[in-house]
Deep mutational scan, measured.
Amino acid sequence: MEVRTIKVFTTVDNINLHTQVVDMSMTYGQQFGPTYLDGADVTKIKPHNSHEGKTFYVLPNDDTLRVEAFEYYHTTDPSFLGRYMSALNHTKKWKYPQVNGLTSIKWADNNCYLATALLTLQQIELKFNPPALQDAYYRARAGEAANFCALILAYCNKTVGELGDVRETMSYLFQHANLDSCKRVLNVVCKTCGQQQTTLKGVEAVMYMGTLSYEQFKKGVQIPCTCGKQATKYLVQQESPFVMMSAPPAQYELKHGTFTCASEYTGNYQCGHYKHITSKETLYCIDGALLTKSSEYKGPITDVFYKENSYTTTIK
Rank of each mutant, 00 (worst) to 15 (best):
Y57K: 00
S25G: 10
L119S: 02
L121Q: 01
Y252W: 10
M170V: 05
F128M: 03
N89D: 14
Q230A: 10
K54A: 11
T302A: 10
T199W: 13
R66P: 09
M170L: 01
S171Y: 15
A177M: 07
P97V: 07
A108F: 00
H176I: 03
S279N: 06
Y311N: 10
S213E: 08
E281A: 05
S50Y: 08
C149P: 01
K46P: 12
L163C: 09
F242I: 07
K307D: 11
F70V: 08
N147V: 04
T5M: 08
S213A: 05
I45F: 10
H273K: 14
N49A: 09
Q270W: 08
I15D: 09
T103M: 02
T192C: 02
G202Q: 05
Y137T: 04
N129T: 04
G257Y: 04
K191L: 10
T116F: 04
R139C: 10
T260D: 13
G272F: 11
Y234T: 11
K46S: 13
C227D: 05
I105N: 06
P300L: 15
C182S: 07
A136F: 03
E162W: 01
N129L: 08
L102P: 08
K307H: 11
K183I: 11
K93P: 02
V8G: 02
H256K: 12
Y311H: 13
D287W: 00
R184H: 04
V58H: 02
C285K: 06
I315D: 15
L118N: 04
W107G: 11
A289D: 13
P131T: 01
F56A: 00
V236W: 05
P47Q: 01
H48F: 10
G82N: 13
S263L: 07
T35L: 08
I286S: 07
K219N: 13
V206G: 04
I315Q: 15
Y36N: 07
T192V: 10
A177H: 05
V166F: 14
Y96I: 04
C285F: 07
V99T: 12
G33M: 00
L179R: 02
G164F: 01
T192G: 12
T313R: 14
M244F: 07
A87S: 06
T192H: 13
Y73T: 02
L186F: 12
N157D: 07
V67P: 06
P78I: 09
L119I: 03
L119T: 04
H51F: 05
T55V: 09
G161K: 07
T120F: 01
H276V: 01
K191W: 09
K93E: 14
E215S: 14
G53H: 10
N129A: 08
P300F: 14
P97R: 06
F217V: 07
S86C: 10
T43C: 10
Q222V: 09
L81G: 05
D62N: 15
L179G: 01
E215V: 05
K7L: 10
K93C: 08
Y172L: 12
T313Q: 12
Y269I: 12
V8T: 06
A250D: 07
S86Y: 08
F32H: 08
I45K: 12
N309C: 14
Y306C: 07
E162G: 01
K183A: 05
C285T: 08
Y306H: 04
V203E: 12
I105Q: 03
T11N: 01
E215R: 05
Q20D: 06
H273S: 06
Y172G: 13
S310P: 08
F56H: 00
P130K: 02
G210A: 05
T278S: 09
T10G: 05
V203R: 13
P34S: 03
C112H: 08
S279A: 12
E68V: 09
P78T: 10
N178A: 14
T312V: 14
K158N: 04
F32C: 13
G39V: 05
C193A: 01
D62T: 12
P241V: 06
N49P: 01
K54S: 10
L153T: 00
T76M: 15
K93Q: 08
Q230D: 09
S246T: 07
T11L: 02
Q216N: 05
M26R: 15
N100L: 07
Y214H: 08
C225Y: 02
T314A: 14
E71I: 13
P34E: 12
G288T: 07
K183G: 08
K54Y: 14
D41Y: 03
M26K: 15
K275M: 02
I301D: 05
T312Y: 15
N100T: 13
E2T: 10
Q222P: 11
A115F: 03
Y311P: 08
N89I: 08
L88V: 03
N49S: 12
Q31C: 10
Q270G: 12
E239H: 12
Y57V: 10
K229E: 14
D303M: 09
L179K: 03
V58D: 00
E239L: 08
G161P: 03
T64K: 15
T19F: 07
P224G: 08
H51G: 00
K316N: 15
E264M: 05
S181W: 13
T27A: 11
C271N: 00
Q216K: 11
Y297M: 05
I152H: 03
L88W: 04
D62V: 05
A108V: 11
K158V: 04
